[in-house]
Design a protein around this nucleic acid. Structure first.
Length: 276
DNA sequence: AACCTCGTCAACCGCCGTATT
DNA sequence: AAATACGGCGGTTGACGAGGT
């Protein structure tokens, strides 16, 4: 025989997490740290399987998570890393402090992919699409994503065909969301008083995702005053700072961009209202 | 105002490599 | 060495909200 079975899977709850469940999980992990996920639900009094707890923690409750849309610089990093690594979301996420693989994967599928296609770039190969972009499907059969099924990923170490003769823009002006500061990484919604849902105006950084409404400020407040055990962090603050994209302070990215992807995106974003 | 369609994202599923017995 | 569970990863799904008709 091998190990003990994980969880009996009988009577386990599924679906969205409630604030109460979140609270249980967070307070348990705060006082005990991350040990074996199998034991977590039982010890924390949750009717979930360990896997579900781990997912909830890593994708949502972890204290070092950033919230909100990816910044321009982050998006840029994702595109570049995706070109090198392909759909290795966890690897890509490891280069983006405070971001999860799930988050990046979602952002890629819902935003970046579309953006690239509209610009005539194949999101899989990162090369120019062979066919004209979206509007004119050949036979009206399939969406363009289906026709481009070349093998993922350009070579690791990536080809260095510099310059597609594209236009240079100095700013990579995608979305309007500002970079978060390191301070914000630990509970970005530390607005203490106003619940994220209610703070309709300001801070684009705290957007809807800030808890998805699930996290209750009342019980978060004391937690935020605690000292976080080092083991709780997947990445140390130093690492975060080291890995932090330069955009926060400067603009010196040095990615290879053979097809001027970033410039295209910049231009696209700049004009995309008028294009619509 | 009601209904419909589309986009987004949290959570689940299933597979794979590794650890444990 | 084999069998089995664990943890992690990537793909997919479905609920929900926003925008359009």
């Amino acid at each position: 025989m091998g190990r003990q079975p994980c969880c009996d899977k009988v009577g386990l709850k599924k679906g969205p997490w409630t604030a109460e469940e979140d609270q249980k999980l967070v307070s348990f992990l705060l006082s005990n740290g991350q040990c074996c996920w199998r034991a977590v639900p039982k010890l924390a009094g949750l009717l979930r399987c360990g896997k579900s707890c781990r997912l909830r923690w890593t994708n949502y409750l972890r204290p070092d998570l950033k919230r909100g849309l990816l910044s321009e610089a982050e998006e840029k990093t994702v595109i570049d890393l995706h070109e090198q690594l392909g759909n290795r979301w966890s690897k890509i996420a490891s280069h983006l402090p405070g971001r999860t693989d799930n988050e990046i994967k979602n952002h890629w599928n819902t935003h970046i992919k579309k953006k690239l296609r509209k610009m005539g770039i194949d999101p899989v190969t990162h090369k120019p699409l062979r066919h004209a972009p979206p509007q004119a499907p050949a036979n009206g059969i399939d969406s363009p994503e289906d026709e481009v099924e070349e093998k993922p990923v350009a070579a690791v170490g990536s080809a260095t065909t510099s310059d597609g003769g594209g236009h240079i823009v100095d700013a990579f002006c995608t979305d309007e969301v500002p970079m978060l500061h390191i301070d914000d990484i630990i509970f970005p919604c530390d607005d203490t008083t106003a619940s994220p849902a209610e703070s309709s105006s300001s801070s684009a950084a705290s957007v809807s995702s800030c808890g998805g409404g699930a996290i209750d400020e009342e019980w978060l407040a004391p937690i935020m005053d605690l000292e976080w055990p080092e083991s709780m962090y997947l990445m140390s603050l130093d690492d975060m700072v080291a890995a932090a994209p330069p955009t926060a302070t400067s603009s010196s990215w040095e990615f290879e961009d053979p097809f001027n992807t970033y410039q295209r995106i910049a231009l696209f974003d700049h004009h995309h209202e008028t294009w619509a």
